[in-house]
Design a protein around this nucleic acid. Sequence first.
DNA 1: GTCTATATGTAGATAGAC
DNA 2: GTCTATCTACATATAGAC
Lengths: 220, 220
Amino acid sequence: MVTGHPSDRARKRAPSRRALETRDRVLDAAERVFAARGFDGATIRDIAAEAGEPVGSVHHHGGGKACLFAQTVARRAEALSAARLAALETARAEGPPRVEAVVGAFMRPFFELAEGDRRWRDYARLVALVSADARWRDLAAEWFDPTAEVFIGELARLTPGAPRRAVAAGFVFAVSAMLALLTSAGRIETLAPGAADEGDLERLIAFCAAGLVAGAGAGD
Amino acid sequence: MVTGHPSDRARKRAPSRRALETRDRVLDAAERVFAARGFDGATIRDIAAEAGEPVGSVHHHGGGKACLFAQTVARRAEALSAARLAALETARAEGPPRVEAVVGAFMRPFFELAEGDRRWRDYARLVALVSADARWRDLAAEWFDPTAEVFIGELARLTPGAPRRAVAAGFVFAVSAMLALLTSAGRIETLAPGAADEGDLERLIAFCAAGLVAGAGAGD
DNA sequence: GTCTATATGTAGATAGAC
DNA sequence: GTCTATCTACATATAGAC
C-alpha cells in the first residue's frame, strides 16, 4: 500500500503559508470523513466537499487516498505517544507505580484529549480502524508499537513471573476495551438505558488493571 | 438500510433443492469476502467470483448488498446464542455460578466453534464489523442484544450493589477483548514474538472476570 | 499551488432471453 | 431459477490551463 507523498522525494522549496493551511484543511476533512465512513466507505470527493476544496487539490496535497489516510494517522501519533510517555514518567517519579497507574498513564491522556475536542474523538476512530484492519499493520507498527513496547515492558516489571505473552495479551485486551469506550460509548447506553456516563473511564481503568493482574497468572 | 429480501414479501413456492444449494454457496462466499474486506471493501463481483456464480445470481439470492450482509450475520446468530445460553444453563445447574463461569459460558462456545472451522472464524469478523459500526446497530440489536441482556442480568446478580451501568460497561469491555482475540490473535504475536498462543482463551476469561468484579465497584 | 476537465475503470443494480 | 448483457452512477487519478 503506497503511503508516501510524492513531494517527499523532490521537495523544491518550503510551502507557502496558504498551502500549509490548505493542507491542514484537507487533513482535517479527511480525518472527519475517514472517521465517519471508514477507509473504503470514504471517497476523495466526500473529503473534498468537507474541506471546501476541489477534488484535484485533495489529490495534490494528499498524494492519493491511501497516503492521505496514512498522513491523518501519522499526524497526531507523536503527540499522543508523547502525552502517554510523559504521564508514565510522572507515575514513575515516586518509585515503582502500581499497575493501575500504568494503565491510567496509557489511557487517560487520550480521553483528556478527546474530551471536548471532536478532532481527537475522530482520531480515536482512526486508531480503532488501524488496529482492527490487518491492511494497516505497518502503519500501526510504525506509530503505535514502540509506545506499546514501553508500556508492556513496564507492566511486565510489575507482574513478575508472568510470561511476556500473558502481558502482551492483556495489553491487547486493554487496548480493545479502551477503543470500544472511546469510539462507541453509545453501545453501553443501549445496554444500560438512561444511566449517565460519568465514571466509565474509571471503570475502564479498574477493569483493565484487575484484568492484567489476573491474566498474568492464567493460561499457563 | 434495506435488509429485507424481496422474496420475503411474495414467495410463491418453496425453492428447489438446487436453488437452496446456490443460495448457501452465495452466503458462504459472502461470509468469506465480507470477513476479508469489510462491507464497503467487498464487492458483489468478488462474492460472485468466490461463489462461482454469475453476478446476477448473487443479486437474485442476496437481494442487494446490504441485504446479503444482513443475511450472513443473521444466519449463524441463532446457533451462537443457543450455544451460549446452553452453556449458561449448564453453569447454573449447580447453584449460583461464579463470574468466571458466566464469562466462560459466553466466550467458550464461540472459540469452540471457531476452532478448526474457518466459517466461524470468518463469522467472528462479521460480528466485530457489526459491533464497531453504528450503521449496523439495528442488526446488532436484533441478533445480539437479547443474549447480552441475559448475561448482563446474570452478572448483575453476581455483583450485588454494582450499578447496571457498571455491569453493562464491563460487558462491553469484555466483548471487545473477546473479539480482539477472535479476529486478530496476530496482534499479540507482534508484541510477544515467538511465544505460542496456547492459553490465550484462559487468559481472556481470567482478564474479563477479574475486570468485571473490579469494574463493578469503580467509577461511582 | 490551484482548479477545471477528463481519462479510465469499476461499482451496484436490472432487463430479458433461456 | 439461471445467466448474459447492459444501464447508470461514481470511483480514483491525472493532464494541463491559469
